[in-house]
Computed example of a mutant assay.
Amino acid sequence: MSETPVAIVVAVAKNGIIGREGSLPWRVRADLRRFRSTTMGKPIVMGRKTFQSLPGALDGRANIVVTRERGFSAEGVEVAHDFEDAIALAQTAAARLGADEICVIGGASLFGEALPLARRIYFTEIDAEPAGDVAFPAFDRAAWRENAREALPADGGDTAGAVFTILERA
Rank of each mutant, 00 (worst) to 15 (best):
T38Q: 13
V6G: 07
A90Q: 12
A57T: 10
A154C: 04
L115M: 10
G47A: 08
I166Y: 01
V45Y: 02
A148I: 01
S73L: 09
F139D: 06
R29L: 07
G157W: 00
E69Y: 01
I166H: 04
P43D: 07
T39C: 06
Q52W: 01
R120N: 01
R61H: 00
G60E: 07
A154D: 05
A114G: 06
I166E: 06
L117M: 09
E129R: 15
P25K: 00
G98M: 02
S23M: 08
D133A: 05
K49G: 05
F136R: 00
S2A: 14
D100R: 06
S37I: 13
Y122P: 00
G157Q: 00
T38V: 15
L115D: 11
Q52K: 04
D127S: 12
L117F: 06
G161P: 10
A13Q: 13
D127K: 07
R33K: 15
A80F: 10
W144Q: 13
E69K: 08
T50R: 08
A162P: 01
E101F: 08
S53Q: 13
A148T: 11
A128M: 12
A162I: 03
R68K: 03
T165Y: 01
A143R: 14
D85E: 15
L24F: 05
V104L: 02
A142P: 11
A30S: 14
A11Y: 08
V65R: 01
E125Q: 13
W26G: 01
S53F: 07
E101Q: 05
E125W: 10
T50W: 05
M46D: 07
V66W: 02
D100C: 05
D140A: 13
A154R: 09
S109F: 14
I126L: 11
A160N: 11
V163R: 08
V134P: 14
V10I: 08
A80E: 12
G47K: 06
D127Y: 11
R34S: 06
T165N: 03
N63V: 02
A135D: 14
P43A: 07
R29Y: 09
E168T: 13
T67G: 01
G98Y: 01
R70V: 15
V9I: 13
H81M: 09
V28C: 13
M46Q: 11
R70M: 15
V12E: 10
A13W: 10
D85L: 02
R20D: 06
S73I: 12
R119F: 06
T165H: 01
A162Q: 00
G16W: 11
V134N: 04
V134S: 14
D85G: 14
G132Q: 02
R36K: 10
R48E: 05
E3Y: 12
T92Q: 15
P130W: 03
T159K: 07
A80W: 07
I44H: 06
V66C: 05
